[in-house]
């Protein structure tokens, strides 16, 4: 399977077989991501890390991934120090990064920004999140986490909880899990329901998601609980945010209603939706999930750069 030169913009650009291949490669990267083994397969390659929006995990794990592969990283994490401040278009910024590097990682507040970036760059572009749109590498690391913990993705009962309207990770994930035939339940406040478009995509793939507001019942026989933050920054007005924030909270009391092998995932950052007391339980997978960003992004960087272990 040849990924050399390919852009990573949307999970929908990939077949199930291609996703499986990426996950296989990610598994091989784990000891390198942990620093137990060393490689220089991307020696002398330069990655442009262009973060027009804040990020902790995505940016650091991409940079860690490139460094672990022996490559180097240039870029910015705050666009206020760039010519964007002077009114430069994204297209022109991308043209510059294209000239200075071998691969571009971009996070941007506007939806479709990564697709636009790919139009103006000859080198491969990886989407690190575009507004409330897509976040394919998060989706892949979520699939990788489920696969490594549950040994399979298909037929798991998976609950997606929280901001299903604006949360970009859950849109990509619902689509990808449907590709595998997982059983999906969506739990959200009424004003933050999963968009119809996403539900229709699941149905087109043969999955009939259940939508409910009853979290306790939803998790009673679930294999995976995927929690998302209510994203204040995506709300058009503060009043709407205040009405829904804190409606759902995962704590040890709630998890008594769940199966012992339920895993709780979260793309992080969390605010109040998961009580820190959950961190010490075997349910808590979110920090391991965050680590998985490194091997998955190492796999993607090596595949699109043509580097082989």
């Amino acid at each position: 399977m040849n990924f050399k030169g390919r852009d990573i913009i949307s999970i929908k650009d990939f077949s199930k077989a291609e996703i499986n291949y990426i996950l296989e490669c990610s598994k091989k990267m784990v000891p390198y991501a942990k620093g137990e083994k060393y490689t220089n397969i991307l020696k002398d390659r330069v990655l442009s890390s262009l973060f027009f929006e804040p990020s902790t995990r995505t940016r650091l794990s991409f940079e860690s991934a490139m460094n672990r592969l022996g490559g180097r990283v240039i870029g910015f994490s705050d666009p206020s120090g760039t010519s964007q401040k002077k009114g430069e278009s994204l297209a022109d910024t991308i043209r510059m990064a294209d000239a200075y590097s071998d691969v571009i990682v971009v996070r941007h507040p506007q939806e479709g920004a990564a697709r636009l970036a790919a139009e103006f760059a000859d080198v491969p572009v990886l989407n690190a999140g575009d507004g409330a749109g897509r976040h394919p590498t998060q989706c892949l690391l979520d699939l990788f986490t489920i696969l490594t913990e549950k040994k399979k993705i298909e037929k798991n009962k998976i609950v997606l909880l929280g901001d299903l309207k604006y949360g970009r990770t859950v849109h990509s994930l619902a689509y990808a899990l449907s590709l595998y035939g997982a059983e999906l339940t969506f739990v959200s406040p009424g004003s933050l329901k999963m968009p119809k478009e996403v539900i229709n995509e699941c149905k087109e793939l043969g999955v009939e998601p259940i939508s409910t507001s009853n979290l306790e019942k939803a998790i009673s026989d679930a294999d995976v609980l995927y929690v998302t933050r209510i994203q204040k920054e995506r709300f058009p007005d503060a009043e709407e945010y205040n009405r829904v924030v804190g409606i759902y909270k995962i704590d040890n009391g709630l998890l008594k209603h769940a199966r012992k092998d339920l895993i709780v995932m979260h793309p992080l950052p969390r605010v109040t939706e998961i009580d820190p007391e959950v961190d010490k339980t075997p349910h808590a997978l979110y920090f391991k999930q965050a680590f998985n960003g490194v091997p998955v992004r190492m796999a993607l960087l090596s595949l699109i750069s043509g580097g082989r272990l």
Binding site: G87, S89, A91, H108, P109
Partner: peptide, 11 residues
Amino acid sequence: PTCVSNFNEPV
């Protein structure tokens, strides 16, 4: 409204 095609980009 937040699609990149609705902003000042040459597309």
